[in-house]
Design a protein around this nucleic acid. Sequence first.
RNA 1: GGUCCCGUGGUGAAGUUGGAGUUCACGCCGGCCUGUCAAGCCGGAGGUCGCGGGUUCGAGUCCCGUCGGGACCGCCA
Length: 575
Amino acid sequence: MRTHQCGELRAEHVGQTVTLTGWVATRREHGEKLAFVDLRDHSGVTQCVVDNTVDVRAEYVLQVTGVVAARPDENVNTKLPTGAIEIQQCSVVILNAAEPPPFPISERADNVAENTRLQYRYLDIRRERMQKNLRIRAAVNSAIRSAMEAQGFVEVETPMLVPSTPEGAREFIVPSRQQPGSFYALPQSPQLFKQLLMVAGVDRYYQIARCLRDEDLRADRQYEFMQLDAEMSFVEQDDVHTAIGNAVIAAARAAGHETGEIVKMTWHEAMNRFGVDKPDLRFGMELTELTDVFSATEFKAFAGAACIKGINAGGKAEEYGRNKLDGLTDRAKKMGAKGLVWLKVAADGTFESPVAKFLSEAEAAAVRERLSAQPGDLILIVADEWSTTCEVLGQLRNDLGRPPVFEGPYRYLWVVDFPMFVGVDEASGRPKPGHHPFTQPHPEDVHLLESDPMNVRSQAYDLVLNGWELGSGSIRIHQPELQARIFDLLGIDEEEQQRKFGFFLNPFRYGAPPHGGFAFGIDRLVAILAGEENIREVIAFPKTQSGADPMTNAPTPVSAKQLDELGIRVLPPKS
RNA sequence: GGUCCCGUGGUGAAGUUGGAGUUCACGCCGGCCUGUCAAGCCGGAGGUCGCGGGUUCGAGUCCCGUCGGGACCGCCA
């Protein structure tokens, strides 16, 4: 039907007779004999010079045959890749008429209510931005597959209908028709299956897997999302990092970005320097140690504090008036800090602050020196427990300093040595696993499992890109004795182990190789590489924050007959 | 479960101290127009101010509730 695509023709094609197909992007009329039609497909736009006799309107589907002609110098459109040429002597076939679209099929629809864009997603996707995003996504998927296969990974598909394992995220459940009252779950991830594939001798498994979690939706979370899921036998952490690193570097390259070496950092260092376990390395503003500066201070808010740190937010003193500073203080308090000290650096280098008078000369000088204070800078200081101080300043650092996603550059980071346990379960008093209960402890810390569990490091690690957590993984426990110790610690007895994880643990008695793996979110990766703040922009048909699809109207009630067949009765709504 | 923001012709916005469904831009329909490229000019049509209730002589505007969308907290081992 066509000889070329709409974004393809250049000066070198002048003189050729061509046929294009596409949608009418715009039409500019100049009387009876002349009109310009910009014909658009996924590749771009070409100007066609036509007789203004056919009724051709926005989004009509056309087939245009004509001759490629060079435009006179004064009519070249430098904004268009095809702007040096146009199609003349056009014969136009209307392949389909179209009603006026509810919003313009152009970048002008970027401001249209997202709900409307989702309701007419097939029109939204016709736009250049969405075409670009979906094609980046396809290129990233393809690059990941190639990288994994080049490293000997075997793609294995795992089931979507799996048993319910009510640990972790809330599951979607699916009623069984043949066994009314019993249910499948949709997989939160292929975690258990991929480890069994290691027992099964697959050696290196990967899959671009759909995962489903019935948790509240966010800018970076959908009910269903895609992960690159991988598992390897006979490896240590570094082997996993290398393999996954190769895949994500290839993914970035497929999107046109070079990333450089992937940095590695312990969890403790990340918290200490950046106050978060997923630092954005694109900017500085690091947390600076001040505890020793105030070891003998008279200032009550700082005296005796376990940990005092500060950040220099740069030349923001003027921008941050009393209201905004009160806002920052509120935010700090909501995150658990007792307060927030702010200091503005005056032209003469002294501090302007309600608490400036409580700081000694030596203390003020040390703060100036440690934080490289320049006139006009805004300095924020928190004094509290180590974790609170770090977390609060880490959040403020992100709030004040983080560049927008689309600015790049792209800085991958491995965060390693996560704590084995995070917090204590209120009901049982037992430590809660930070990753999952099959995570191998750090070999140097195994002896502390019973005596000092909260200080045991695990062989769990996260991959971070520009402040977004892409995913996590770990070296798994393959020794039944160690697994038993972990379950003991967590307070999961033999009976519960068998009931919840029997199908998973029993196979490990038949010769489980040492193994470990990783999974990262493709939607998040693609969003960052495409410069989008929201993963819905890189998903063809996403759901709204309430889990609905404005185009299909899902979810919907089902008939009484369907429910009856499944042995299900719906309760009246709670009122 | 919670906090905050938004909802006004097809689209995006403005709407002051409560005073007539009002305004602007784009789009749409009709006309003019032979070099535009977000073409231009002239004319026209198009509204359940999300929905329900309340206060008031009078509500887009104030109050209560509700629905929808979004950001965040909780949640996401």
